[in-house]
Amino acid sequence: MDELVIILVRGVGVGAVFSLVAMSFNVVCNSSGILNFAQGNLLVMGGLCAYLLLPGDPEPIHWLVSLPLSALLVAAFLALQGWITLLPLRSSVEQHSWLITTMAVSVMIGAVILVWQGPFALNVRSPFPNFPLFGTRTPMSYLLAVACAVFWYVVLRWFHSRTQTGLAMSALSQDLDAARAAGIQVRRLQILSFAISGLIVGSSGFVAAPVIKISADSGISYVLNGFIAAVVGGLGNNLGALIGGPLVGVAAMFAAFRFGGQLQNAFSLALLIAVLMLRPQGLFGRMAARRV
């Protein structure tokens, strides 16, 4: 019973981080068709910001000040990355240069962390105490990660349906040519979407810093699980991402408890293949519904 509760609570908490990575995928993918492989390492970068900005024994006030700072730092980095990624898409025959450029940036971030901080995982202490939940003591960061996921889901929903910029960004994903014909500034919005995805992963990395692995080689695992969460929910759909993340998180946590942490990713891979084979459009996918 205890084990089950731990699996569920931590699975949902870790899953919320996957949801956030998935949503950050969606924002960029919807506006440009690009899947940013670096998103996992950028989450780690958010965690690294927490490690660098927070003192060893942080007070909540430190936390509150550093949170927006981390989000903005990562967003600025992502805007730059977006600009670079979109550069070769103007002239190249093949439109797949982003596969390389985003992966290259991901590799470089990992390498910089390795050179700078060494190969070992960094620990961040949370200013908030653990809280009791169904009889277990759960780190507050799990709860904060869930809150962060819900917060960004609501904000994105509002942004895409209420603001002129958000509407234009949705229009971009629905019909690129018609959007250009309507005078929507495509390139600017695409870079903005990179920046927004940076706000999302930057804040989530910071919030979840005490419970995620902050190291040079952990980014790829978050990219994969985030992508799997996005696929489970239906790529491009934020509600799907919000629900898909915890599903993947609980499954991974279950695997870790039952078979050991080494098999966590293998379990996620099996889940990905199962979803792609049985329902490639995901739970809430638009792929099938989209006009062709």
Binding site: S161, L167, A168, A171, Q174, A178, A182, R291
Partner: peptide, 15 residues
């Protein structure tokens, strides 16, 4: 070609 997932109001507003 219009933006199918947006409302009529938003489609006009975007123009």
């Amino acid at each position: 070609r219009v933006f199918p997932e947006l409302t009529v109001a938003d489609n006009i507003r975007l123009g």
